[in-house]
Design a protein around this nucleic acid. Sequence first.
DNA 1: GCCGTTTTCGGCCCGACTGTTTTCAGTCG
Length: 557
Amino acid sequence: MNNLIVNLVLGDIASLLKIKGANNYKIRAYENAIAKIKNLDVDIKDLVDKGELTEISGIGKSLANTIQEIIFTGSCEEYDNLIKEYPPSIIPLLKVSGIGPSKVKLLYNKLNIEDLEDLKRKAELGQLTQISGIGAKTEGKILSSVNKLLDETDKLDLGEASLLSNKLKTYLDKFKDVHRIKVIGSLRRKEEIINKISLIIECRDFQVISKNIKILPIISEILEENNQKLILNSKLGVKIELIRASSSDFWNKVFWLTGTEEYNKKLKSVFSIRQGDLENKFESEKNIFNKLNIPYIIPELRSDLEILDRAREDSLPLSIKNEDIKGDLHIHSNWSDGRYTIEEMARACQNRGYEYLSICDHTHSLTIANGLDVDRLKRQWEEIDKLNEELNIRILKGAEVDILNDSLDYGDNILESLDVVIASIHSGFGDSQEDMMKRIMIALNNPYVDILGHPTGRLVLGRASYNINFEKLVHKAVETNTILEINSAPKRLDLNSHNVKLAHKLGANFIINTDAHKMKQLDNMKFGVGVARKGWLEKEDVINTLSLSDLKDFLTK
DNA sequence: GCCGTTTTCGGCCCGACTGTTTTCAGTCG
C-alpha cells in the first residue's frame, strides 16, 4: 500500500513538472522511479527503514529523500511547492487528447481552467479558441475527449484493479480476526473495466476491520457504513466495498454477489430457484451449484444471459484454463523496446512452465521503439540460435511487423524465414475505414503473416478501435488461416470478449499473447485467458495450447 | 534527477503528423 501512495504522489509531481515546463530529463527520472516502484515485490517502507532505497537504480539521494518524506507524512516539500503554483485538479487535463502539458499551462493561466468540468464548459462555449494554437477543430477534439474522460474518472482497468484488490487482500489477511476473504462482483467476473472492488470478508469483528481500512492513505471518503457493509471511495477513483459474511452464509453471498443482477434474475427463473433453497451452510460454491442442480458456470460468464440457456441444455463450453497455455508468442526484448534480454525473458517463460516462446520485436519503421532493421534482426537470430543450445525452452524467431500504409515493414524474403510473424498497426490510427481495411487486408493476404496483433487497436479507457469492418476482417482471417490475437495487456484486451465470441462463431482461430515488454508482464496471460473464457473459447480454439511440434505444423501450413 | 565517470558535469530513445501561429510548436506513438 505504501508503494501505491508513493507512486500517486510521485506521479502528481511528474505531471505538475510537465505542466510547469521543467527539464524533461528530470520528469523522466520521476517516471523512471515510478516504474521501478511499480515493479517492486517488497514494501518500499522496508527499503526506507533499511536505508536501501538508493540501491534501486534510478533512485538517487534526492528521490530517496522525497520518498521517505511521502511515507512518513503522506506528502513532500516538492509536491507542496508545486501545488502552490498549480492546483492538482488540472493534472487530469493531461489525459485529454489534443492537449499536452504546455496547453494545460496556457488553459490554466489564460482561461483559469482548473479541472475537467471547467474545460468542458469553456469548450462548449467556444472559448478555447482564444488560446493560440487551438482552433475550432482542436476544440471539438478536446470536447469529445473530455466527455469520455469524465465518464471514466471513477474506473480502473482490470490490471490496476486486480493489483489494488490484491494489496487490500494482503493487508486485510494480516488481521487475526479475518477468517477468509473472497473477491466478488465485476472483478471476479474479469470485466475489462472496474468501478468497484468488492470483497466478502468473514471476520470476528467487522468494526475493527472497518476502522483500519478507513484510515488507509489510499481512501478519500466514506460513502456508506453499517455493521454489514462498508463502501469507500479511493484516491484512484475506484470504489471499495467490504461486505461482511458469517461462516454459514459466506458461500451463499459469494454465489449471489458474483453475477450481475440481470444474470441472477434469469438464473432464478431458468432454474426455478425459490426462497429457502439455499438456507443450508455450504462448504464451497460448487456445492451450491450441485444443490441447485445447475452445471458449474465459471465466474467470467456470470454476466452473460445467453450462457444460462446453454446451462439449461447442459452444453456449457469446456472453458480454456490458465494451465492449458504452453507458450507466449508475443514477447519483446531489449533489442527493441523491451526492458530485458532475450535470455531473461526466455528463462522467465521457463519458470512459468512454458514449452516455447517467440521473440517478436518491433520492426524498423517504429523508430521510437528502436525497431529492428534486417541487419539487426539477423544478428538477433544468432543470439537466439545460441540460447536455444543452452536453454530448456524453445525460442522461436519472430517479429511484430508494422503494417504500413501500403506494405509490411519487412519484405517477403525476410518474413518467410521467420518462425512467427505477427502483423500489427502502430500508426495512422485515424485512417478511414477504407484505408484501414486495405492495410489490414495486405497483412491478412500475406502468406507469411501468421497472426494479426491487437486486431482492433482499442485501448481500455483510452482509445476506440480503429475504423474497421470487424466481420469482414474475421472472414478474411478465416479464409487466409490467419490467427487472431487476444492481447492480454490489461490496457488492450484486444480482441475483447464480445469480438472473440463473434469471431469464434465465424470460425476464427485465436492465440493468447501477453505482448510483454517486461518479465512481470508475462503474468498478464491470465487476463487474456479471462477474455477467452468470457468469449466461450475452449482449449482447441487457442493455438498456444498446442505442443511445440503441433504448433510448428500449424504455423507452416 | 540519475548515472557514470575524463570526480564535476554532460548525456539521458526519435520522427511524423497536425492544425494553425503560413513556418513551427505541440502532440503522439
